[in-house]
């Protein structure tokens, strides 16, 4: 199977000046991540806020240039040598944002919102543009009468349908979904997730699906990667990771989720907050909150090593 998305040892740091005359410090948002998604599949990315998920997503869509490493979509680098976006339209990735309320311009009717990506060079001209807008509305299950309405006339779920339709306008093959349902009512969440699944089957889309809850990610994904403080701590096929998590952080995430029963070794509870990425702990970044911490954890950074045929984890415990 060929990979549509390849993330190769990507690192992203931001220079932060803590005070006016202070020295610049590097905030490491993403540290040496490699991932690949085969065509037509979904990779789920899980982690708390501040774990670097969105930074990674922004590098895939081209909004941010990686400090080192590179992102390839179908073998083509997303950024050129100068860090400018090289892939646009169908060859690049499109993104579905978290909040459908702020991701639609309140002063544009739906037809105009959906047509906007089509007006960027190479332009899609008028009769075809009109057709494409109708096609998009059909695809996401909105009536044609929605064309002339404004975003505020829709519910959150309908708005997210508009956002998805707009992301699909240029027929991208890769869609980044940045927590697409976390701002929606629970009753609507499953409808949007099902829509995304249907669209994937229909159009052969590849998803990078980001979430902070395991329920939606588990439902959507073929494979799951768990992020903590800019690093991947565990990775593997979705059903295996959920049924038998290796890393204590994954275990804690699963035991905190009510929808997924967790049996391996009782519950694991997390205490405290995610540490500041400006001041990460030495050794294993998770050791400050790990219930199973030992001496070696403070000394050496655990590498992401294979645990079985298809799984990897970064933990000193065997």
């Amino acid at each position: 199977m060929t990979e549509l998305l390849q993330i190769q040892d990507v690192r992203k740091t931001f220079g932060i000046r803590s005070s006016f005359l202070g020295r610049k410090k590097d905030l490491v948002a993403v540290e040496g991540i490699s991932l690949r998604i085969p065509k037509g599949r979904t990779l789920g990315l899980v982690g708390e806020s501040g774990s670097g998920k969105s930074t990674l997503a922004n590098m895939v869509t081209g909004m941010l240039a990686p400090t080192s490493g590179q992102v390839l979509i179908d073998g083509q680098p997303v950024h050129d040598q100068k860090g400018k976006v090289a892939l646009r339209g169908e060859s690049g990735a499109q993104i579905v944002f978290q909040d459908p309320y702020s991701s639609l311009n309140p002063r544009m009717p739906v037809a105009q919102l959906l047509a906007e990506p089509l007006k960027v060079a190479p332009k899609v001209l008028m009769p075809e543009r009109e057709q494409r807008v109708n096609e998009l509305l059909d695809q996401v299950g909105l009536p044609r009468s929605a064309r002339q309405k404004y975003p505020h006339e829709f519910s959150g779920g309908q708005r997210q349908r508009i956002v998805i339709a707009r992301a699909l306008a240029r027929r991208p093959r890769l869609l980044v979904c940045d927590e697409p349902v976390s701002a929606l009512d629970v009753s609507v969440q499953s409808q949007i997730l099902n829509l995304l699944k249907d669209l994937q089957d229909e159009l052969g889309l590849t998803y990078l699906f980001i979430g902070h809850g395991l329920e939606s990610v588990g439902f959507m994904s073929d494979e799951i990667a768990v992020m903590y403080l800019g690093r991947i701590v565990e990775q593997g096929p979705a059903h295996q990771v959920l049924a038998d998590p290796v890393h204590p952080y994954t275990q804690a995430l699963i035991s905190s989720s009510e929808a997924i029963p967790f049996h391996a070794g009782g519950t694991v509870e997390l205490t405290g907050e995610i540490p500041s990425p400006l001041n990460p702990p030495s050794g294993c970044v998770f050791r400050t909150r790990c219930p199973l911490v030992t001496d070696i954890c403070a000394e050496a950074v655990p590498a992401l090593t294979p645990r079985s045929e298809s799984r990897m984890a970064a933990c000193h415990r065997r």
């Binding site: 944002f97 906007e116 007006k119």
Partner: peptide, 13 residues
């Protein structure tokens, strides 16, 4: 900073 501006940038507007 609103997402609809970022979305437009992402489309290459």
């Amino acid at each position: 900073e609103r997402q609809f501006i970022r979305a437009a940038q992402n489309f290459g507007v």
